[in-house]
Design a protein around this nucleic acid. Structure first.
Lengths: 216, 216
DNA sequence: CTTATCTTGCACAACGGTGTGCAAGATAAT
DNA sequence: ATTATCTTGCACACCGTTGTGCAAGATAAG
């Protein structure tokens, strides 16, 4: 430990402001590279951030520490928006709620992408799963209500359908890393994809989506 | 090279029959482990196959060689079924064609899964892309016909929709690695997921799927 | 049974990645 | 301008993995 990974006790001076700047630069670089290859090296990440590998250890004790911080940051951003984003303001209509969740994901795409890389396999599964738990639980409940109300397809168990909708949304988010999609179009796609997996026709989905709208 | 990676010239004797057996055992083991972690080590793969790491080098010169053989095997299986599977027997109806393609993927799930791991990122992208090209081209054409005929959603460009359908199908195949899905149910899911992304409602998809059917 | 084939077990060099130490340099706060 | 903070560049040890060599053992083909 050559530099403060912890809060300096009764700090005699404020930390340099480029410290926090570089820290986020590293996290951003990690997000980019880990999206392309979840096994990217620290040297690569440091270079992408415009720093040295050695400097990274001034901000994160361990490679795993860095990844953990990255995942935590993403989870916080998403959690902060679950409430603001009026998901539950879609009173009763599960279809609107699903659309709103899709829009939320699209807004946080940068953070969601990297979480998706570690969500399924590898040693970070548990962490990501825990971080995404409230989001998943919300979707699960919405789907259950929708099935009961006959708004969604009724041939699948709620929990399975919820996971499939999640998968459909992620497929779009993944496609977005290759096809340039401008804001509204991307959100529109995520929403219709989710609703399509949920059982709606294209026409129905479009109706719901325009009713919900999308604001950056 | 301690053992024949090549055809023995005027072979004085037939190769032991457990050679071919072990070779496929290695490939199968690789398929299993590489699905879980695309960076699995040779030691792990060898162990999974019930062999030694050293023995693997008796069958494949290189780690990359092994992966390449695995991908090639998968591509061949799929290519062999594109014709047999009466995709184009869905005369004119793009929806049936998409359903049949979904069923084909489900039948070859073991091979498709591992290809999906290397399809998007990493140094094997090109190989996999080339191997899957005919399949993708076929889907691309089907989608184009479907859009023109007003059978599918018309708000997306054909090539983009084709990729999204592919993504939806893969999402289901991925889910299948965690949720045990028995034959017909899995095929049903892949088909409805693809058709849902294509714009059909659940009811429409079900109609198409039952019309197409599924035979193991 | 004899023999070629395949496997094992060990040893070794090479590579890339990680994590750490330390001294010199650059930079922003005060 | 001074000083604490942050970065750099080099050094090193450690680890896991890959690829190879070789001799002894197991196994299936003839």
């Amino acid at each position: 430990m050559t530099t403060p990974h912890f809060a300096p006790p009764p700090s005699p001076r404020a930390p340099r402001r480029d410290a926090a700047l570089n820290r986020t630069a590293i996290l951003d670089a990690a997000a980019v590279l880990l999206n392309q290859d979840s096994g990217s090296s620290l040297s690569a990440i440091a270079a992408e951030a415009g720093l040295t590998r050695r400097a990274v250890y001034g901000h994160f004790e361990t490679r795993d520490d860095l990844i953990l911080a990255l995942l935590t940051r993403g989870a916080e951003r998403i959690a902060a928006n679950i409430h603001l984003d009026s998901v539950d303001s879609a009173n009763g209509d599960s279809r609107e709620a699903i659309a709103r969740l899709g829009a939320l994901l699209w807004r946080e795409i940068g953070h969601v992408q990297v979480m998706a890389q570690f969500a399924v396999r590898g040693p970070f599964m548990a962490v990501v799963g825990e971080a995404l738990a409230p989001l998943r639980l919300l979707l699960r409940e919405v789907v259950e209500r929708g099935i009961a109300a006959g708004q969604l397809r009724t041939d699948l168990e709620a929990s399975l359908l919820a996971r499939l909708i999640e998968g459909a949304a992620l497929a779009v988010l993944d496609e977005a890393t290759r096809t340039p999609l401008e804001g509204a179009a991307g959100a529109h796609l995520v929403m219709t994809a989710s609703l399509g997996m949920a059982g709606l026709s294209w026409a129905e989905s479009t109706t719901v989506v325009t009713r919900v709208g999308y604001t950056e």
